[in-house]
Amino acid sequence: MSCWETLADYGLRSLGIGERLLPRDNFTLCQQVVLIGSGLIWNVYFGVLALITGFFMAAAVAVGKASRRPLARKLSEWFIFVFRGSPLFIQIFFAYFLFLSLKQVSPVFDPFTSAWAGALVVLFLNTAAYSGEIFYGALLSVPRGDMEAADAYGLSGWTRFRRIVWPTMLRLAWPAYTNEAIFLFHATTLVYFSGFPAFQQRGDALYYASYFADKTFNPFVPYPILAVYFILLTLLIVGIFGWINRRLNRHLPQERRQRMRFRPNLLR
């Protein structure tokens, strides 16, 4: 079987399209590369959707935490505390069993017992909490001079927030937010290892990599393949976020522009 046929058979296997049975023995390198790459679709799906939805929630949480109203502040603080203080692994487990119990109460929760919706909700809340904390930190470091200038121009309330506070906050938070985005994509690999079943063996990249590692009892092939995929994915994220960073800073004089640090640190 040529590699092209393998690609046609297994390229979209993680979505349930193509060959139904996974290869069982005599694994070729091509099969491993194709199937693990096919699983990567799910990592990108979880990462992108959680990131986009989480972004808006994070903004709300950050504003809430900086708010003068005690109710909004306490709610945001607790939200951030719960999701940053506990492991994502346990959160996903907990959510899965919670949705299983809720399913018996109402069929509304049916889709949430499968990964595509249930795990997405957890990842969305998790990234909202982490980015919310980042945005909150940035919100506190908006320079006082900017606010005074806004006052002098007679801007207030919503206009001031939209035109002064928000863009400055985003600019300040962006390097840390890039880091968070990278780790969110890494965190998506946890989904199929914690509760959520891979329906008809449609899993993510790590699911297929560990499938091969278990079957061949040889971790030296599938995991490096997966690592290469993830390094490429990380570089892509850094590229996209770097481009946005340049746009956010384009009004600043050259020497004051914040250089993006292409060194993701483990800051979660």
Binding site: I182, H186, A187, T189, L190, F193, L206, A209, S210, A213, F217, P219, F220, Y223, L226, A227, F230, I231, T234, L235, R263, P264, L266
Partner: peptide, 20 residues
């Protein structure tokens, strides 16, 4: 090493690789 690749991949890799 650990930048760019999820840590869980290293966990699953090393546990078998070290043993072997």
């Amino acid at each position: 090493m650990v930048r760019g690749v999820p840590d869980i991949v290293f966990f699953l890799f090393f546990i078998v690789a070290l043993d072997q």
